[in-house]
Amino acid sequence: MSFNNLDTLYRQVIMDHYKHPRNRGFVEGDALTVDMNNPTCGDRIQLQLKIDDGIVTDAKFEGEGCSISMSSASMMTQAVKGKKIDQAMKMSELFSQMMLGEDVDTEEFDLEDIEALQGVTKFPARIKCATLAWKAMEKGVHDE
């Protein structure tokens, strides 16, 4: 597949998550809740994680922002469901490395749609948009 076709595919994946977000809404019952925003562009998110016995059993978000931030939140909530907290945090670390343009070993975790966000590294001002939901998860877990 040529670079242009791959770039188009990635854009389509991002727009699909933006227009049809997965896990948008609120977790029923008790949940770890984190509110974060990106004051430079106005993105904001409320992330909720339901954690039972060290496993993320549910993850949802509400918020407003650009296609990058909302798509990333959709992808992240899909990716961490069913994962142990330490696995979810490792995924967040890998995602941060990917956003910094570093090569990441994706063998341990299948990043699925998340890989579509690799192109964000070409636009440094958008990296904070892509990492907002991930940073919210990290903050919530560390504060808990």
Rank of each mutant, 00 (worst) to 15 (best):
M76R: 02
F3I: 15
D113Y: 02
I127M: 08
C66I: 04
E62C: 07
L111F: 11
A31M: 12
V120P: 04
N37M: 13
G25H: 10
S69W: 04
R44T: 13
S69Q: 06
C41P: 07
R11D: 14
E108R: 08
N38E: 13
K50W: 00
F61A: 07
V13D: 01
R126A: 04
N38V: 11
T131M: 07
D103C: 00
Y10V: 05
R24D: 00
C129T: 01
D30T: 12
Y18F: 15
V34K: 04
A79N: 11
D105A: 02
C41R: 07
M70Q: 15
L49R: 00
A79H: 09
R126K: 13
S92K: 03
Q97D: 14
Q12N: 10
V27M: 02
Q78A: 12
K139Q: 14
L94K: 02
H17P: 09
E138Q: 15
T57R: 12
D103P: 04
D43Q: 08
T40W: 01
V56M: 02
L9P: 07
V13Q: 00
R24N: 03
G101Q: 08
K122H: 04
F95K: 00
L32S: 10
K139N: 12
G29M: 03
V34M: 05
V80K: 02
V34Y: 01
E28A: 12
E144Y: 07
G140Y: 02
E62R: 12
I51C: 03
Q87T: 11
M89D: 08
L6S: 09
S96M: 11
A79C: 11
V104F: 02
L117T: 05
G25T: 09
D16L: 01
L47W: 04
F109Q: 03
M1S: 14
A136H: 05
F26N: 13
F123M: 11
D43R: 06
R11A: 13
N37E: 15
M36D: 10
E108T: 12
Y10H: 08
F109I: 09
L100W: 00
S2Q: 10
P124Y: 08
R44Y: 02
P124H: 04
H17N: 13
F109R: 05
D105P: 05
A73K: 03
N37S: 15
D113N: 14
Q118W: 02
D52S: 10
G65Q: 00
Q78S: 15
L132K: 01
Q48A: 04
D103E: 13
T57Y: 00
V13A: 00
F61G: 08
L9C: 02
S72R: 00
V141G: 08
E28P: 07
R44G: 09
G119H: 01
D110N: 15
Q78K: 11
